[in-house]
């Protein structure tokens, strides 16, 4: 599977889905436990609060640490700046317009590094690079008056789909373009 250069892991979507399911299940268990223990009355609410605040301190530290750790782990390799290995990348101009894409070149090579400079002639669009399995590899917005640059290295040959990922009008879903990677 081809991946953007900055992407270290094999796939981001699947872990996102699994983490969501796992954490949601944990939340469900906590709510279920509390609701199961809600019908009997304990008059000493101060006692419950005291215990609850102690647990909350631990919970806060854990949650804060996880979020802080996730921040440091994920923020080190952002897609915004040109990575050093892309200094000599092939520059490709891409223009979006209702409802199609205009590429300065249509054929690409495996292992080559490309910097796609994306803009729009009319309204906002979004450029999404999809592989042959229709998995989204990377994207950026295509905006009038601005140029966003996205860095891509294709790792496998095939026909890649370019899909519009910002709603741009009645034929938005027809704004598909194919590029060939050899």
């Amino acid at each position: 599977m081809a991946q953007p250069a900055w992407m270290i892991t094999l796939n981001v979507q699947q872990p996102a889905w699994i983490i969501t399911l796992l954490v949601s299940s944990l939340v469900f268990i906590v709510f279920w436990f509390i609701l199961k223990n809600s019908k009997d009355r304990e008059e000493d609410y101060d006692g419950i609060k005291k215990k609850g605040f102690k647990i909350r301190n631990v919970y806060f530290v854990i949650l804060f640490s996880v979020l802080l750790g996730a921040t440091f782990y994920t923020i080190t390799d952002l897609p915004y700046d040109r990575p050093p290995e892309f200094v000599n990348a092939t520059e490709v101009e891409v223009e979006a317009l209702q409802f199609g894409w205009d590429f300065s070149q249509e054929e690409f090579e495996v292992g080559e590094k490309y910097a796609f400079h994306v803009t729009s002639q009319d309204v906002n669009h979004g450029i999404g690079f999809y592989d042959e399995d229709m998995m989204l590899l990377t994207q950026t917005q295509a905006m009038p008056d601005y140029t966003n640059t996205v860095y891509v290295e294709f790792e496998e040959p095939g026909t890649y789909q370019i899909l519009c990922l910002e709603y741009c009008g009645a034929a938005h879903h027809l704004m598909i373009h194919e590029i060939e990677v050899k």
Binding site: W6, V12, T74, Q139
Partner: peptide, 10 residues
């Protein structure tokens, strides 16, 4: 998360 948003946005 920015690197997730790269493949989940929209």
């Amino acid at each position: 998360t920015i690197i997730v948003n790269q493949v989940m946005h929209n």
